[in-house]
Simulated scan of single mutants.
Amino acid sequence: MTIPATHAEIEELYLNAELKQCRSISVTACNSFEGTSTIAQALTERYLLAGHRTLLVDLNLYHPSLTPLDITPAQSGITELSELKDNWVQDRQSPKVFLGVIAPSEPRTRLLFKDPSNLRQQVSVWLEQYDRVVIDTSPILNVNKNNIPAQCVANACDGTYLVALSGVTLSSQIEDAVQSLTEGTHTQLLGAILNYRDQPTLANEICREIDRLRWLPSKVTQWMKRKIRQNRFLALPI
């Protein structure tokens, strides 16, 4: 699943963060596979389109999404955490390429990043070289000894977005996640993102049926689908 950087919803996320003067953004969710990596990449693209030098950081140790490319790395400002070097990286499931940081594999490095002060220091180092930093985090409610807690990452960033998968994430899980993010911390929760990935809109379903009408001229079917997608009522999820 990919989301265009010019998507209206991504534009809203971008403007919301910019109006609140957030230079570092973390994207998290209650559970795994709810769309944090997709949102983080789309938001990174939007920052790049705006002319911001942007670094995408993968701290989602539960399900890493980035893999390094064999390209000469950019000079890194990282000192003691030498493994986390910025380099050209690629999404594991698409051809998208970014300047980014892959998920750390060394236990010692993971342990260092679990220290809130170390993590804040590292984000500050990245912000000396980049205009914006977007961090993909592990799920809040999937706690294990290897994950870097999403709460620590959120607390080290200027703002955080919480992703919820429609039809899957429970309201009680969202409440627990919000409480975990904000209780006793200085985390700024920028908002919640409702992912309709598994709930297609009525417009998409109608367009899918139109595609079966192969006897109609292509110009007619394209016109019909364009009119259907422009209807705000049909854009609602089923």
Rank of each mutant, 00 (worst) to 15 (best):
G159Q: 11
A177T: 04
A103W: 05
A150F: 01
N147S: 06
A177Y: 03
L213T: 03
N204L: 09
G191N: 08
R197I: 04
Q121S: 15
C157H: 12
V101R: 00
P139H: 03
T201W: 00
E205A: 12
L216D: 04
N147M: 04
S117T: 13
V143H: 11
I193Y: 09
P95V: 08
L111I: 14
R208T: 13
Q188D: 10
W223K: 12
P107E: 07
S171L: 12
S218N: 06
V133Y: 02
I140F: 01
I135M: 01
I148D: 01
K145A: 10
L141M: 05
V178M: 10
L99Q: 13
T160I: 03
N204D: 15
N195C: 11
I193F: 07
D136N: 13
L165V: 06
R212V: 00
L99G: 00
T185V: 04
T160A: 13
C207T: 09
K219V: 09
N147Y: 01
C152V: 12
Y196H: 15
N195K: 06
T187R: 11
S218M: 07
S117H: 12
P95H: 09
T221P: 12
V143P: 11
V178A: 02
A150L: 01
S124N: 15
T182K: 07
N147T: 03
D136I: 00
V133N: 04
E205C: 10
P139M: 07
T201N: 08
Q179D: 07
N118G: 03
E209N: 12
D158E: 14
P107S: 04
D198H: 08
D115F: 09
Q199F: 02
V101K: 02
Q122Y: 12
A156W: 13
D115V: 11
I135R: 01
A164H: 10
D115R: 12
V168G: 02
C152Y: 15
Y161T: 03
G159K: 10
W215D: 13
Q222P: 04
Q90I: 07
R197L: 10
H186E: 15
E175H: 06
W223N: 15
C157Y: 09
P107C: 01
R92M: 13
R132N: 05
A192T: 14
T160E: 09
V133I: 08
K96W: 05
L165E: 08
R132I: 05
V101P: 00
A177E: 05
Y130L: 01
R197F: 06
S180Y: 02
L127T: 11
L202Q: 15
Q121A: 13
V89I: 07
Q173N: 06
L162A: 00
Q188F: 10
I206H: 11
D158L: 08
Q121E: 14
G167V: 03
T169M: 06
Q222D: 14
S171M: 12
S138R: 05
E183A: 06
P116C: 07
N195Y: 09
S105R: 14
Q222T: 09
I206G: 14
N155L: 09
E209R: 08
R110H: 03
V123I: 14
D136T: 01
K114Y: 05
V168I: 14
E175L: 08
T185W: 04
G184A: 00
D136E: 02
V125I: 14
S94F: 10
